[in-house]
């Protein structure tokens, strides 16, 4: 193997933007916490690594199990943290977790109007739009209009329930199982469950036509 990558042209390494006041403050607080022995750099690294390991695939696994196993769905609706632990998923957030079910008659959509509360332990980082002032301020006032912008038009006879997650409870939406999936196994079903369907701004994918 020859070592030729030193010749690759690339821009000089540099910060891609000047540090903001918030970044400076975070760095200063982190440096103080380390200096005082309250946390170590390895604690910070492990916390970042743990957070980065979470993704909507975890939530999709939970939903697929709920679709194939009604008893599991019952336990998920009754005590979500305990139910996901059955699948080996530890919800490490201190907050509690609550599952709600979307049906033909009731549609839940989740928001945090105060900040960006989100079931990160199950879905990973929230999408940028979830944190945007636009979504947070409008979905509570006009949920049907906002859902329509996401491409989801709900019948007038569907009851819309907006869940404002302001405190210590995180919400997971169980989307309805799409039609035409009767023969699919759990893994195939999980591939139909999108992040957005677990927030309530979309339906699960429908299977590709054979």
């Amino acid at each position: 193997m020859h070592d030729d990558h030193h010749d690759d042209p690339h821009a000089p390494l540099a910060h891609d933007h000047p540090q903001t006041e918030f970044e400076k403050r975070v760095d200063a607080v982190q440096a103080l916490l380390i200096e005082k022995g309250i946390i170590t750099p390895d604690d910070v690294r492990r916390a970042v690594e743990e957070m980065d390991s979470r993704s909507p695939a975890l939530g999709a696994k939970v939903i697929a199990r709920a679709w194939v196993d009604p008893a599991f769905k019952g336990r998920l609706l009754a005590n979500a943290k305990r139910a996901i632990a059955e699948l080996g998923i530890e919800f490490t957030q201190e907050a509690a977790l609550f599952a709600v079910e979307n049906t033909e008659k009731v549609h839940h959509v989740v928001v945090c109007t105060l900040c960006s509360c989100y079931p990160r332990g199950l879905l990973g980082y929230p999408p940028d739009w979830y944190k945007s002032l636009n979504y947070r301020s409008r979905v509570v006032v006009d949920p049907r209009g906002v859902l329509k912008e996401f491409g989801l038009e709900l019948d007038a006879n569907v009851e819309v329930r907006v869940l404002d997650s302001t405190a210590d409870m995180r919400y997971l939406v169980i989307p309805p199982r799409p039609a035409g999936t009767e023969r699919m196994d759990e893994e195939e079903l999980a591939s139909l469950v999108t992040r957005d369907s677990m927030i309530g701004v979309a339906r699960a994918r429908t299977p590709a036509l054979q």
């Binding site: 509570v140 006032v141 006009d142 949920p143 049907r144 209009g145 007038a156 006879n157 569907v158 009851e159 819309v160 329930r161 907006v162 869940l163 404002d164 997650s165 302001t166 405190a167 210590d168 409870m169």
Partner: peptide, 14 residues
């Protein structure tokens, strides 16, 4: 409010 009269909002309050 422009939606259905059955639409609700649920919020967590201490």
């Amino acid at each position: 409010y422009r939606g259905s009269p059955r639409d609700t909002l649920l919020v967590d309050v201490y």
